[in-house]
Computed example of a mutant assay.
Amino acid sequence: MSVDTLKAARVVRRAGAHYDASFMYDVPGPRGRRNIMLGSIVSCLVLGGILAAGLWQFAAHGQLAPDRWAPFTTWPIWRYLLDGLLGTLEAAAVVAVLGGVLGVLLALGRTGRIRPVRWLCTAYIEIARTVPVLLMIYLMLFGLPQLGLTLPRLWQLVIPLTVANAAVFAEIVRAGIASLPRGQQEAALSLGMRRSQAMRYVVLPQAFRNVAPSLITQFVSLLKDTSLGFIVAFTELLYRGQVLASYLHLLIPTYVAVTVIYLVVNGSLTAVAARLQRARGRRGAAADPKTSADG
């Protein structure tokens, strides 16, 4: 890749930086924002009432007794659960890498010009999105041994999740590519780039930037899907919680602790996605000529 081509790619990307990437939904107006605020307040009140009712029921049945929660004030218990969290993150990371790479290839194939490749990629995406992940896990667990093939527990979980999430990643990336104006690729081609170079150095970087919040949100969903690892006895967070609940005979406190860990991890990732969304909106508003003129 020559230096001139890289410079040309930066020029084209900079020229399209003002494009507003909020293509998945319309920006709400004053009434819409007011309705969203009212809905959020009502939802918080309802959730608060449900939480209060649940705590009252727990207290009525002795679930809030200090001796039932005492084991969770010790480090060994939390270390045992956090080891399961490491297994969850390991499986999610492997699926994210494999599914991300496969998803990009599927998105490029579905948006490409070669008709048979486009048909195959479309068929894969549609089928993978409709087949339940649980069914694919059962096929890995019970079907492959019938053929004399037994995979490690990690891969019994990773392969079905990769098959399913690759299709979702492909659609997210395809939406990011479709969000860009056609002039971006045409400008790159006019500067002497090949189509593959224009896609690699101009289109895909902007597409990834536009859909970064959606990708993080999908990773949050992927983290939750790894809880299916208990089916294949993979050492992940929910499986560790099941073992610990059986050992301590403390079902509710154990699953509350597991829930707290999921809330912290997934809530942090969701906050990152929201921050990226806000930052992207500010950049788009600052670079929009109409907004600047109105200001």
Rank of each mutant, 00 (worst) to 15 (best):
A9I: 05
A17W: 04
H18F: 09
Y25L: 04
Y25C: 00
G32A: 04
G32R: 01
N35K: 06
I36K: 05
L38G: 02
G39R: 01
I41G: 08
S43V: 06
S43G: 08
L45H: 08
G49M: 14
Q57R: 15
F58I: 09
A59C: 11
Q63H: 10
A65K: 11
F72W: 10
W75T: 10
W75G: 06
L81A: 02
L82I: 10
G84C: 00
L85W: 01
T88V: 02
A91G: 04
A92N: 00
L98D: 01
G103I: 03
L108E: 03
R110M: 15
R110S: 11
R113A: 13
R115Y: 08
R115Q: 09
W119I: 14
T122F: 09
I125E: 10
A128Q: 07
L141S: 09
L141G: 05
F142T: 10
V158H: 03
N165C: 13
A167M: 10
A187W: 05
A188S: 12
R194D: 15
S196H: 12
M199A: 14
M199I: 14
F208I: 14
R209D: 15
L215A: 11
L223I: 10
T226R: 02
I231P: 01
A233L: 04
A245Y: 00
L251Q: 12
L269P: 04
Q277H: 12
R278G: 03
A279W: 09
R280T: 07
D294I: 06
